[in-house]
Amino acid sequence: MSDVSLRDAIARHGLDARKSLGQHFLLDPTICARIAALAGDLSGRHVVEIGPGPGGLTRALLATPAVQVTAVELDRRAIALLAELAAAHPGRLTVIEGDALKTDVTAMVPAPRRVIANLPYNVASPLLVGWLRQAAAIEGMTLMFQQEVAERITAAPDTPAYGRLAVLAQWRCRCDLLLRLPPGAFSPPPKVWSAVVGFVPKAEDPGEDLFRAMERMTAAAFGQRRKMLRGALKSLGDAEGLLAAAGIEGTRRAETLTVAEFDTLARELLARQAGSS
């Protein structure tokens, strides 16, 4: 379907983008095809798309060798348009009306799974953290964010953008900023640039308990990032002892720690929790 015919379908269904849902539709078929290509070879893969809206990216995904595309959409206005697309691709597109924040992608489709999406801006970060928790069961993710969020995800230590999101994402995945898009690529144009980030999960699965410990550690460390770690980590208990056991100076600040150092701290925190229970 061309850009023009897609816009006609949007008009026919009265599907205007809503700010309350963080919607900025990506309609250009060339850009959509490029994003689908950035996900790599989808042969034999089950793809989950979140927030497809009118289905610009969905059409590009259906043009790949993916076994099936499962689209999760909260906006009921888009469901009828997507149902037409599903009818045109029998057996290849499943449309689910629901809240992606309450959806388990690993229970939705069989492996191997990929998540590919132009994420709604207002829920992008919590969606990502949820998928990072399940990263061992997801083969890869190709996700669009506001450029600022994408830069926070891929930031290096000791840079202004480095924070909790960078640590959690880079701890679980190799993260690469693959593509930047100007506001004019979307309808309506957002006020900021957007960017696509590719995620390749690492082989080691830390498990739920260690993931929770890392969440607690990063929340404490970056919650008061101007403080030295010995002060910022007080809410976790014996901060001085925790830092000493991890071989990290208490006078350092969170943004100076590498992902590996946060891993050491999280493992020490988990060990102390296990020892006190």
Rank of each mutant, 00 (worst) to 15 (best):
R172H: 14
C32S: 14
A80F: 02
G22T: 01
T70H: 03
L269N: 01
G51K: 01
A88L: 12
F145S: 00
K191V: 08
L165D: 02
A87L: 15
E268Q: 15
Q23E: 13
T58M: 08
T258N: 11
G231F: 06
L26Y: 08
V123L: 10
A36H: 04
A88N: 10
I138L: 13
L270N: 03
S2E: 08
L143V: 04
I96D: 05
A266K: 04
E240N: 14
A11Q: 11
L21G: 01
R253T: 02
L168R: 07
F145T: 00
R164M: 12
V67C: 05
V200H: 13
T64V: 13
G130R: 15
L269K: 01
Y121Q: 02
L57P: 01
E84K: 04
C175S: 06
A221D: 11
R216D: 15
T70E: 02
L42I: 06
G207A: 08
L257E: 08
T264V: 15
E151I: 09
V115S: 07
V167S: 06
I10Q: 02
G237Y: 11
Q147P: 00
Q134I: 05
P182S: 13
R114K: 12
T258V: 11
A63C: 10
E261N: 06
P120F: 02
Q273E: 15
G250W: 09
G241I: 10
G55A: 14
S5D: 15
A245V: 03
V67A: 14
A185W: 04
I79E: 01
T154Q: 01
L165S: 00
T251V: 10
M108E: 09
G275A: 15
F145L: 00
G140D: 07
P54K: 08
R212N: 12
W193S: 08
G198H: 12
L243Q: 10
L181C: 07
A239I: 06
A37K: 11
D238K: 11
D28L: 09
A244C: 07
E261T: 02
L269Y: 06
Q146F: 04
G91M: 13
R164N: 09
A150G: 09
V129T: 11
P160Q: 12
R212L: 13
Q147I: 05
A39E: 02
A135C: 06
L93W: 00
S276T: 10
D205S: 13
I116G: 02
E49F: 11
E240L: 15
G22E: 01
A246E: 07
Q146M: 00
P29F: 11
I31V: 15
P188D: 06
A185K: 04
L181K: 00
V192R: 10
L82H: 03
L181A: 01
L82T: 03
T106W: 05
S235A: 15
S125P: 04
A274P: 05
